[in-house]
């Protein structure tokens, strides 16, 4: 039996400011109020709560009837982003920058993971949680790290819940995430085309188009998808404000989400947060179409393998051994 407890109500606020910060927030609020007052003096009207909630309602109304992301013109994309940014401002006082950056030309992303080097520190997990605004309440994580005994290569035989000092002698570590399959069972399953593979190989979800049926989750052979069973909650000061429409923007309740190779970073030419955070250099990311890229070097010179190759999903994620 799950009874909605009192703390659920607190969590209902999408963004919960932590206690030690309340003074700063108070001062910040005061300065905003002062600014608003002076603005109202200039324009000659008082900002009333009614107008604000009316604006919120109008924005939400337009958001509700908006199109599928892929059918939007660039102008419509900009409009919805403006609405989302304004709504975030009204609801939680956050200044977001939501990008709709399109895929780069001649790019197909690929990922390789060195199982010899990884020592299981889980820095990648922590970086991913922060970068992608993952729900702190249910401890959602896209990346899972498994501690493996020698002689095995299937994470399902490893321990995904280890909690001790690492590395442990005679153990090795293997991480999983969404593998961005070329022949992805999840995109095939979705009844509303709310999830698809972008031209640069990233499998994305349109969070506002998803109806939350979870068929894609059942279809994924790699446990790559996560569902927002409740409203995600992230401490306000930890929210990553640099967002992408298809990436790390804060997900609504009841929608599917997943790793996007940090689309908000990679489309700007940066590396995914997990790659940057890894202290052992076990993670390699790059453009598969660029013959001089590191990922191409790994594929050419190392012994690589992929998970569940027999399913024919053609993942863009390889494991390799030094």
């Amino acid at each position: 039996m799950i009874k909605p407890k009192k703390d659920d109500e607190a969590a209902e606020l999408e963004i919960s400011p932590s206690a030690h910060n309340s003074r700063r927030n108070f001062l910040k609020g005061l300065s905003i109020a002062a600014a608003a007052c002076s603005a109202s003096l200039v324009t000659g009207c008082l900002p009333d709560v009614k107008a604000e909630s009316g604006e919120k309602f109008a924005l939400q109304w337009k958001e509700y009837f908006k199109k599928h992301y892929r059918l939007m013109t660039q102008q419509e994309k900009e409009e919805t982003v403006a609405r989302l940014e304004r709504l975030a401002k009204l609801q939680s006082g956050l200044d977001l920058q939501i990008s709709t950056r399109a895929p780069r030309e001649n790019v197909l992303y690929g990922y390789a993971f060195n199982i010899t080097r990884c020592e299981g520190f889980m820095e990648c997990v922590a970086a991913c949680v922060k970068e992608n605004n993952l729900d702190r309440k249910t401890k959602t994580q896209y990346i899972r790290v498994f501690e493996m005994k020698p002689g095995q290569l299937d994470p399902s035989t490893g321990d995904g819940k280890y909690f001790h000092e690492v590395p442990v002698d005679n153990k090795f570590y293997m991480a999983t995430q969404c593998f961005h399959c070329e022949n992805a069972p999840c995109t095939k399953a979705c009844p509303t085309k709310a999830t698809w593979r972008e031209p640069d190989g990233i499998v994305v979800v349109d969070y506002d188009w998803c109806i939350g049926c979870r068929y894609c989750q059942a279809a994924c052979p790699y446990f790559g998808r996560r569902f927002n069973w409740g409203k995600p909650s992230i401490p306000k000061e930890e929210v990553n404000r640099k967002q992408h429409y298809l990436g790390n923007r804060i997900r609504p309740m009841g929608k599917m989400e997943k790793c996007t190779f940090c689309i908000q970073r990679t489309r700007e030419g940066k590396l995914p947060a997990c790659v940057e955070a890894c202290p052992t250099g076990s993670r390699v990311f790059g453009n598969l179409l660029d013959p001089d890229s590191e990922i191409r070097f790994v594929l050419k010179n190392k012994k690589v393998f992929r998970m569940k190759e027999d399913l024919g999903t053609d993942p863009k994620f390889w494991y390799f051994i030094d």
Binding site: A189, P191, T192, C210, I211, G212, C213, R214, N228, M253
Partner: peptide
Amino acid sequence: DLGGPLQAWHLIPGIGQFNFPSS
């Protein structure tokens, strides 16, 4: 069972996006 029952209209062909015959 839907997480977003209010978005169920996304399924209706014409006004929504119906992933037929793939799904």
